[in-house]
Nucleic acid binder design. Structure first.
Lengths: 124, 124
DNA sequence: CATAGCAGTTTCCTAAAGGAAACCAGTTAC
DNA sequence: GTAACTGGTTTCCTTTAGGAAACTGCTATG
């Protein structure tokens, strides 16, 4: 590595690094439902059918798959409470909390973008 | 009982708003290459084959498709300069710049996440 | 004239994402 | 007994994403 004048070389290296980071980030956050599910469970822990009701349009198959995936990646935890009958509660882990600023920026930008799309539709 | 359902629906405005925003944002940023391409063109304007060389592994078909898509959504501009032979330069628009904080947060989180994955692999 | 580069397009293909509907075992309320 | 709820699974299907390889028309260079 050439680390002689790193302050001046920021853009190029930063860019390559950012690119890797972003690809890695999107790899675990991809798909239509992941961020929505994390957001929902950050808001409050829920059971399977509660999530299904809240996240409009998700099928049980997809929900089960996504929950497994999120649990594998340590974003959520599935806990079985030995009530009769058992209650199964999904909740966001601390690690999910590290996504808050990403979610916030994405949400802010999403709002901006929607406004822009509306605007450009008005013009046409 | 089915009468409880209706009360539930009203209490989650914040979440629903964020959710919509995020879905809208991801709708235009989805796929394996979009953010990488925007980042590359924010760094500097480039021609087709320059991008192809920089973004490792992208095929010309996909690159052409993604560039069209990004242009439609006003993230980049395709300009033809009447040199001989013509030069075709793609560059990021001002609108791409509005994505900077999203890209920054995503990149920061991606780096954190990679560290975490390494960490958990060491433990196993 | 042959070769190489530019900016893609075309064809063919696989894999993954996502959805609809039915089904299941266990429990509980009527 | 039967209907409903819980937390899913299974099957079948369509759509989309993405990739490999070949090809195109054009121009410039040796």
């Amino acid at each position: 590595m050439k680390t002689i004048e790193e302050q001046e070389l920021l853009t190029k290296d930063e860019c390559a690094g950012s690119l890797r980071n972003i690809i890695d980030a999107l790899y675990v956050l991809n798909g239509k439902w992941k961020i929505a599910l994390i957001l929902s469970l950050i808001q409050s822990p829920k059971r399977f059918n509660e999530i299904k009701k809240e996240i409009d349009g998700i099928s049980p198959k997809i929900l089960a798959k996504e929950l497994k995936d999120l649990e594998l990646n340590d974003f959520i935890k599935r806990t079985v409470y030995p009530t009769t009958p058992v209650s199964i509660i999904y909740h966001a882990t601390d690690y999910s909390q590290t996504l808050k600023s990403v979610i916030h920026e994405l949400s802010t930008w999403g709002a901006l973008h929607r406004e822009k799309v509306k605007e450009s539709m008005r013009k046409k």
